[in-house]
């Protein structure tokens, strides 16, 4: 059944006779036109990456960041309508801040995903607003060790907080993806945007659920996947932006940070190399070295 012409798709929060909300489905169309974003949850951290299509030569290279920090340990990347992505980030920062105000401790990744899921869902309920034209990937590393309460000035009790099970593991890396409908799931590897199908296929090949891969491997895989998902017949050049989050003892010390330039360039070099190699296998006569920076 087509949605067009029925009248059920003309405003938000309207069900069609077969129980669909077309405006939400159309919002997802906006997502499908955006540059590919992916997230990888690995053993010791989370990696976020995005393919930034260069729409104009006049854009300042490297200046327009698409991955945002929400709290020190939380990062967000989204595909779809960029201004909606900014709105999402603004709201996420407000949520993280109000959580800190209330509980004097950083928000966990799961709680942030829940809050933001609710927020997006609320935008499907009313005719007075439209759904978000983005799918967002939220990555975070929740502290595994006992950390001080915000504003704590003394040494606190010499023993840890009560009610904790010593055998239970607390915190760790987490990854969620939130859709325009407000639906969200936790993921080991998440992909959205134009190249999501190819990216998903590549993510499924990684061993993320079992033994897991290391953060550094994940950075390299993320770069490779963005290169694989990029369709250079359709789109012009793109910039790769990547960020990562490790635990306290890892390279980012529990913070969400941009992947250092040297590592990113190394990952890009390997990504291009592996693309060239696979091209060679497919068409052995041609050397595909068209790839430039």
């Amino acid at each position: 059944m087509t949605s067009i012409g029925t009248g059920y798709d003309l405003s938000n929060s309207i069900f069609s006779p077969d129980g669909r909300n077309f405006q939400v489905e159309y919002a997802m169309k906006a997502v499908e036109n955006g540059g590919t974003s992916i997230g990888i949850r690995c053993k010791d951290g989370v990696v976020l990456a995005v393919e930034k299509i260069i729409t104009s030569k006049l854009l300042k290279p490297g200046a327009n960041k698409r991955i945002a920090t929400v709290d020190r340990h939380l990062g967000v990347v989204s595909s779809g309508m960029l201004p909606d992505g900014r709105h999402f980030v603004d709201r996420a920062r407000d949520e993280a801040r109000s959580w800190r105000d209330n509980f004097k401790t950083p928000i966990t990744t799961a709680d942030l995903a829940s809050r933001m899921g609710n927020y997006l869902q609320a935008h499907t309920l009313y005719q007075s607003v439209r759904p978000f034209g983005i799918t967002a990937i939220v990555g975070g590393f929740d502290a595994q060790e006992e950390s001080p309460v915000d504003g704590e000035v003394g040494n606190g009790p010499s023993c840890g907080a009560g009610g904790k099970n010593p055998d239970k593991k607390y915190g760790g890396p987490f990854l969620y993806m939130i859709e325009p409908s407000g639906l969200y799931w936790g993921y080991y590897g998440a992909a959205t945007g134009k190249g999501r199908q190819a990216a998903k296929a590549e993510l499924e090949k990684l061993d993320l659920t079992g033994e897991g891969i290391t953060l550094e491997e994940a950075v390299k895989e993320a770069a490779r996947i963005i290169y694989v998902a990029h369709d250079d017949s359709k789109d012009k050049e793109f910039e790769l932006e990547m960020s990562w989050i490790s635990g306290k003892d890892g390279p980012t010390k529990g913070l969400h940070q941009e992947v250092p330039k040297a590592l990113r360039e190394e990952a890009e070099r390997l990504a291009k190399k592996s693309l060239d190699d696979s091209d060679d296998e497919e068409e052995e006569k041609k050397d595909g070295d068209k790839m430039e920076e």
């Binding site: 920090t69 020190r72 800190r100 004097k104 915000d150 504003g151 913070l255 969400h256």
Partner: peptide, 12 residues
Amino acid sequence: DRHLEELAVDES
């Protein structure tokens, strides 16, 4: 201190 912490998070 908590207020300044918020400012510091903003800076990040």
